[in-house]
């Protein structure tokens, strides 16, 4: 019975889609980092529209392929800076370019992972479907997304999730979910990853898998990661310190630019 309903709904769905034009969510983007991934001049922003500024006059650059740690005490504006780069929070003044463009929503080459993602609890969704959502970036309205299986499988394997693909999302551990969200960013084709304390509350195996993924295996991501862990800092190419509303660069990126040459 359910098979008949599925087949019927598939055929009706295809008929419905065939009479509608497919419209992309946003302007299509070609990958390929132009040399500087992020550049900010005199940038200031606030967490909330009517709130106080979180940081001001920030001037810094992040080259392509550079792994940057964002450090500073709680409330120093790390999350706000990441949300500004993602296009989720408007800037107050100054200017900022992310991969050559002002921040906006609808950019497939950018992925942002919140510290605590607000996912609807107990939503009936399998892990595979969650990762597949990354492919939507390359499609749009009135289009079905059943393809991308190969890319999804590869991302699942790279993040050690292949065995969990059919598991409901709400049964995953925090670490498994975090890896699934990174896999979704990979499927999306993101080259700049904005990660807000991805290691908070992570079990050791998940941490190692994410570490290996971000820092080894010759992956060509530009990473901007807010972190509290001083032991981590050795692996980063560049450290941005945020303190009392100011942003300072600690040490520069050392020769990772060739990854994109």
């Amino acid at each position: 019975m359910s098979r008949i309903i599925t087949a019927l709904s598939r055929h009706l769905g295809e008929a419905a889609f065939s009479i509608l034009p497919s419209i992309p969510y946003a302007q299509k983007e070609l990958n390929g980092c132009p040399g500087i991934a992020v550049s900010a001049k005199q940038l200031s922003a606030a967490a909330r529209l009517d709130g106080p500024v979180a940081f001001h006059d920030a001037t810094f650059e992040i080259p392509c392929g550079c792994r940057t740690a964002l450090i500073g005490p709680n409330g120093s504006g790390k999350s706000t800076l990441l949300r500004v780069l993602a296009g989720l929070t408007p800037i107050r003044s100054g200017e900022v370019l992310v991969a050559g463009e002002s921040p906006r929503l609808g950019r497939s080459r950018l992925a942002y992972l919140a510290q605590r993602p607000h996912l609807t609890e107990l939503f009936p969704l399998k892990l595979r479907r969650l990762v597949q959502m990354g492919t939507y970036a390359h499609h749009g309205w009135f289009e079905e997304c059943r393809h991308g299986d190969e890319v999804i499988d590869r991302a699942l394997t790279r993040l050690g999730l292949a065995d969990l693909a059919e598991r409901p999302v709400h049964t995953l551990s925090g670490g498994q979910l975090q890896r699934a969200l990174i896999a979704r960013a990979v499927v999306q084709g993101a080259e700049i990853l904005l990660l807000d304390e991805p290691y908070a509350a992570l079990d050791q195996p998940s941490r190692e898998i994410i570490d290996r993924f971000l820092f080894e295996e010759g992956s060509a991501f530009t990473v901007v990661m807010a972190t509290h862990d001083p032991a981590d800092l050795g692996r980063f190419d560049r450290i941005l310190e945020m303190r009392d509303g100011a942003v300072s660069t600690r040490h520069a990126c050392s020769g990772h630019d060739h990854r994109h040459a």
């Binding site: 607000h118 979704r184 999306q188």
Partner: peptide, 9 residues
């Protein structure tokens, strides 16, 4: 399921 990701896309 994930309002913020929908906005980001």
């Amino acid at each position: 399921f994930d309002e913020e990701y929908a906005a980001l896309l």
